[in-house]
Design a protein around this nucleic acid. Sequence first.
DNA 1: AAGACGAAAGTGGTTGA
DNA 2: TCAACAACTTTCGTCTT
Length: 308
Amino acid sequence: MAHHHMIKKCPECGRINLFWNKEKGEVICKDCGLVIEDKMISFDQEWREFEDSDVGQRRTGAPTTYTKYDQGLGTEIGQKSDLYGLEGKDRNKFFRLRKWQYRISTAIERNLKLALAELKRVSSYLKLPKSVEEESARIYTLAVQRGLVRGRSMESVVAGALYAACRRHEVPRTLDELSDASGIEKKEIGRTYRFITRELGITILPSNPVDYLPRFASALKLSAETQSKAVDILDRAQKAELTSGRGPTGIAAAALYVSASIHGEKRTQREVADVAGVTEVTIRNRYKELLDSLDLEKEIKKQKKKRR
DNA sequence: AAGACGAAAGTGGTTGA
DNA sequence: TCAACAACTTTCGTCTT
């Protein structure tokens, strides 16, 4: 499982009072004021850079390096300037290079087409919004252009791109869900995700447990009140520093488990665990932490009385 | 009998020397 | 590069409902 929460302690003062300011897109330490992450992911910029350089180059033949991926063909390509340099001097070579060029570009397009079809399939399976689908397509295209697919399967890069796009749009899916939809191993998706986001310089903030609530709640057929109670609990948990360094799905699951108990819509730990893709043990651990620092005992007892 | 609990050992990843 | 480490999982015995 990917650990979205490497940041546990503030590197400056060692305290764990990290706070995520969603609007500003930064994580700050409330103790010493250190800004740990202040890069709002500006994909537009990345994209423009890509349009100006890579694509432009391919279409117009501007001279630059030209890394190519080799799925299927296994070919390394030289610079385009090579081709023009040879033009007229050696016709055979020219045509050979032209053929290469042709085969390479069609290979890219062919592969891109395949990849985008796969992407669409997975995306619709997961019922992802159009915006996420488009973003992941852009990420994938960018990855191909940078030669990042080399040594990786197309499917895993597609899955990684989708995972990243979901996170960026704050509609996160778990690695388990991506794995189920794409048929790629969880481990592999996480690996690829980390690799391409690092290589492309895409910064993704730790996901917020709240983002998982709606889906989990509806899968468990919980009422809106239960869900909003869970949001409330999560809110307090964040203030009590219970969320730093923890997996967001486990926290979301525990919050739902508690609020369901309070609202008389009791679900078993197993049911919640399955939906959230964590184990009962994790639910118990988070649950215990919630009870320890937020005093929810009264509300739970109140509910217990009601039930008899 | 099913659910909840928690100890103990194992996994995969991060971090810091 | 590697050992220590944190979070999470798996497994399993015991207690509670």
